[in-house]
């Protein structure tokens, strides 16, 4: 004969499969993640770029190597920015803690964006005058460049000393600039495609969703969890 408690337990297991195992699994995952050092991400992040440029220079990356390298760098940066934006919601709503890797994710995104802009300026439009003319004249370039500029102070204050000097609250306020920066990047992608294409729209929607999740008030979140 089932007591009230075991009945409730089996009901829980039946209505929310996996509930009973999820907490230990999550704890185990977080414990495992805590063992992974973050520093190797920095040297590792250089490898894909080196690989990409090598492929471009030796004619191993499609028929139009400049376009291929430039677009891929931009896309990778957008992926990383979205991944960086996902860290907080993942911790808040799924209990998975990737906070230790967020700085490396953000700095890698910034590094890829710098490579993206350099490829564009040197190999694509070929010249600082032409690049500047495009920045001033072409809205999608202006928007992309504005997004990158917003990330510059974030990259400059990404070390522990900067956080200490600024104080946590001021640092967090400054780093909210990542929200408009990612949105500008996604809009830049939507604008440079011809017609209304699905792929860039998906990224824009994802960015909006990840930013929007931050506005969910804490108590509602608790209610949702219960």
């Amino acid at each position: 004969m089932a007591t009230g408690n075991t009945l409730r337990g089996s009901m829980m297991a039946w209505t929310c499969p996996g509930t009973s195992e999820r907490a230990p699994l999550r704890a185990r995952l977080n414990r495992a993640l805590a063992q992974v050092p973050a520093w190797p991400l920095y040297p590792l992040s250089v490898l894909p770029v080196a690989w990409l440029f090598w492929q471009g220079a030796t004619g191993r990356i499609g028929i139009e190597p400049v376009e291929a390298v430039e677009h891929r760098l931009g896309l990778w940066a957008l992926w990383l920015l979205l991944a960086g934006l996902a860290v907080t919601p993942l911790r808040r709503f799924a209990g998975i803690n990737l906070m230790r890797f967020r700085r490396a994710i953000g700095l890698t995104a910034f590094f890829y964006l710098c490579c993206h802009v350099l490829t564009w300026a040197v190999l694509d439009v070929q010249g600082l005058a032409a690049a500047w003319a495009d920045i001033v004249k072409r809205p999608y370039v202006t928007i992309g460049m504005a997004g990158l500029l917003l990330l510059v102070p974030l990259a400059l204050t990404s070390w522990n000393g900067a956080i200490r000097r600024m104080g946590g609250a001021a640092w967090r306020r400054l780093h909210r600039l990542v929200y408009p920066a990612v949105l500008l990047g996604a809009v830049h992608f939507v604008m440079l495609r011809k017609g209304w294409q699905l792929e860039p729209m998906v990224y824009l929607a994802l960015a909006a969703l990840l930013i929007g999740m931050r506005t969910i008030p804490r108590d509602r979140q608790k209610a949702a969890r219960r």
Partner: peptide, 12 residues
């Protein structure tokens, strides 16, 4: 409106 037409890249 989104880019210059003054020059072109010859594919290949």
């Amino acid at each position: 409106p989104r880019w210059s037409q003054a020059s072109e890249r010859r594919v290949g």
